[in-house]
Design a protein around this nucleic acid. Sequence first.
DNA 1: TGTCAACACGAAAACGTTTTCGTAGCACAT
DNA 2: ATGTGCTACGAAAACGTTTTCGTGTTGACA
Lengths: 346, 346
Amino acid sequence: MKKRITLKQIARELDVSISTVSKALRNSIEISEDTRQKVQAFAKFYNYRPNNIALSLKNRKTKTIGIIIPEIVHHFFSKVISGIEAVANKRGYNVIVGLSNESFAKEVINMEMLANGSIDGFILSIAKETLQQQDYHHFTETINQGMPIVMFDRVVNAIKCDKIIVDDVLGAKKAVSKLISNDCKNIAIITTKDYVSVGKLRTQGYLEALEEHKINPKASLILKVDDELLSEDHLDSLEKEIENLFRNNKKLDGIFAVNELYAITAMKVARKLKMNIPDDLQIIGFTDGVLSKHAVPALTTVSQHGQKIGEKAAELLINNLEREDEEDIYETVVIETELIERNSTK
Amino acid sequence: MKKRITLKQIARELDVSISTVSKALRNSIEISEDTRQKVQAFAKFYNYRPNNIALSLKNRKTKTIGIIIPEIVHHFFSKVISGIEAVANKRGYNVIVGLSNESFAKEVINMEMLANGSIDGFILSIAKETLQQQDYHHFTETINQGMPIVMFDRVVNAIKCDKIIVDDVLGAKKAVSKLISNDCKNIAIITTKDYVSVGKLRTQGYLEALEEHKINPKASLILKVDDELLSEDHLDSLEKEIENLFRNNKKLDGIFAVNELYAITAMKVARKLKMNIPDDLQIIGFTDGVLSKHAVPALTTVSQHGQKIGEKAAELLINNLEREDEEDIYETVVIETELIERNSTK
DNA sequence: TGTCAACACGAAAACGTTTTCGTAGCACAT
DNA sequence: ATGTGCTACGAAAACGTTTTCGTGTTGACA
């Protein structure tokens, strides 16, 4: 077991000073051709690599990005990470991930753990509990300490930072408009409680689409599901709530669901009630995950382009980190959604 | 924007030495009650937090675990990460992830990038290309430098390190035995080429189950899919290959697929050929992802418990890191699989 | 008064780099 | 002999900690 070699050791072996070694390795013209060759050969032989931690301490830069997301076992979030990683890697950065599990406390702890020098900046999507409590002090404090943040998907406008969002309103509007032009007369929305920003925005898009087509929204067609039901463990109660929606609206012929799970569960209920998709009922979901693609029938859905969101977030953050002038100009980038038509609509 | 405060600044403000501040904050009895109070109050007021990088340099420990996996947009791998993160966090570690994208070169680069002081140890699953080329020098070198590695799922026995594996053979055997006892007479396996260790092992389990029940394996019932077809982009050709399998074996009545995608695609083909599941054809998959749970009919599958694999891997690695004696005793832990019976079998 | 602990603190090294600045040695011109 | 200007290198500081060791001051005690 040969440990990593350091500059000091090379210097001692070659009987020169540490500075000479350092310079020789960086091809400084200060050092004679002779010495340079000698040092480089020696370093190569012993497979010398500068110690990242020492460099980080010296440069006060870690070349590492912190990612804080609510969960990782989730198609959208893993796509985003994948996008971040790709760009980060290309630009010489590593990524370190923390999971909040939708908990405020874990979000705070994770951020504090990383903010003490471990990373140069954050890319994050806010936990539901945080959104609910509206306590954003950990974000403002981090930013105040000069550590940039890029938020994606679940953002809050009050915080001054870069943001990557999806045109949730427009995406939802397009989806619902599609249902309307496909002759749906009674379109329900299955969405989240309002404190989840994206749920609220998609609901807004739903309402706007109805209004544009002079359709009066009906309260009974709007199902705001309690967020606990999103977890895989509460599928049953989610199914019951949706089944109630169906039973209370006999003429239901279109559904817009704000996420994949709601859409798939709606399909399940429809099947149970012997409704034919898309003949009796057309369904559109949000987020283009594996479930939508492989469902039967394949689900028409609003794709969010998670990969692109991640890439853009990483770009924005790194640009910010490497910008010379310390101007605080924050962008909000909107990544366009795309309606992917499959077989759950006509 | 107030930057993070350091020991030196506190020392200057309070007109004491750096060492006094450091000791006071750690409640050393060397420091008088008075000074301690003063320093701690000041530190608290300015929200002092020790700089992680400086600590890492000093202690030569980063309290960070490196994870290298082939891809992250994948139910199994994200489950594993989730398990690692949970344990790591509880024990005061962070996780930093690198993606190999199944490429040998990216695996090597990622490991080199992290091995230079950024992390204390690795948890990884080997890229397919690496398995194919059988070039493992980056693993042995890392281990030789005293940095421990824990491999999971895709492992290679030649490397001396901790390993977490699934009882692939037994899991496959249980699945195929289930099909046999469900009266299947012509059971096919859809698997990978042999260099993917887990594919090979699951194939072995399939063969063992047949043998145990005195059934002669038929070459035409064994489909070894080229790994490129696993990507979501090549669904069509994957479907064609599987369709050929069906057409060449008219009496096919059972399928064991070594992963979720193969199983789902087989279901798709069956549907296309008007075969009824599970009456005409019974299917069992491997890996318990979302697709299996939400497929119609829901897919019977061999669950690998990705979360548990991750947890165990993290435990093993951290135990190793924190062990005093430098004994190199490596464990191979087998995580039991579980056959989750759903509706694709009788 | 002198000695000795106990107390409370500071100086400095160490972790592994990079970089600034100083300078010894030499050649050359004056 | 003096001055000038290179060349090639070394010393030391700095990044932010922790820790070992040394030391000045105090009070108790003989």
